[in-house]
Write a protein that binds this DNA or RNA. Structure first.
Lengths: 114, 114
DNA sequence: ACCTCATATGAACACTTGTTCATATGTTTA
DNA sequence: TAAACATATGAACAAGTGTTCATATGAGGT
């Protein structure tokens, strides 16, 4: 290991002191979270919700997908607390539930653009 | 939509102005990136590399896995530029390739702890 | 109560993916 | 160059996942 790399790792190690207590179960949960982001349909759904909340049919139209497929994916997003719903008459409007979605998104984009 | 939510979305919309040009292909790439993080074996490998670089057998031992399985996963991580290698004699040492891995990790952990 | 519309759900199917086993590649040392 | 060791790779298999089709649930309007 070169000195430069060693320093790099020492620095990182300090930075992740808070992370050191992460156990196996948490790592599995982490993998499960990223699994939600790993499908392009779900990514596109979340992205469409960045601008404004939409109901199921609006999402399906925007993505050129069947209502059923969208509904199945929304179920998964809801179960993981990534989206929340609001009922208005017959329609159900979906929106992103917290800002972590945005942060995870933008970090991913930053990695890609290199 | 309530006024509070409207404000929330207006605010978010401003924040993601830079994101607005994201096209379908980029979203697919994004999903592919997160797909790498979506397997607990790969997550555990990356986590083990936070502390210091390791060779293949050290990773396999640390995770209680077969060398072959680890090697297959390392291949995937390498292809996505998430790890880099350094040869030292017969051994090949793996290390994380950039700090985005760390950032993506910690954002994920933050979401989980809620 | 009935019909209509929006959404959800279950089963079936094709496709993807991670692991194992066996073996190949490539490097060091005798 | 041959043996020993570390790593990579290909084929096969089991398990998981997203979509479609058909249908169920639930709310509003007549």
């Amino acid at each position: 290991m070169t000195d430069i790399m060693k320093d790099d790792y020492e620095l990182r190690k300090e930075t992740i002191d808070q992370m050191e207590s992460v156990d196996e179960e948490t790592l599995a949960d982490l993998a499960d979270l990223f699994k939600i982001f790993s499908d392009s349909t779900r990514i596109r759904i979340m992205y469409s919700l960045f601008i404004k909340e939409l109901n199921v049919q609006e999402i399906a139209d925007a993505l050129g997908m069947q209502q059923s497929a969208v509904s199945h994916q929304l179920r998964i997003l809801r179960r993981s607390n990534l989206v929340k719903i609001r009922r208005e008459g017959k329609n159900i409007y979906y929106r992103l539930s917290d800002s972590h979605v945005f942060t995870i998104f933008s970090q991913g984009l930053e990695h890609i653009s290199e």
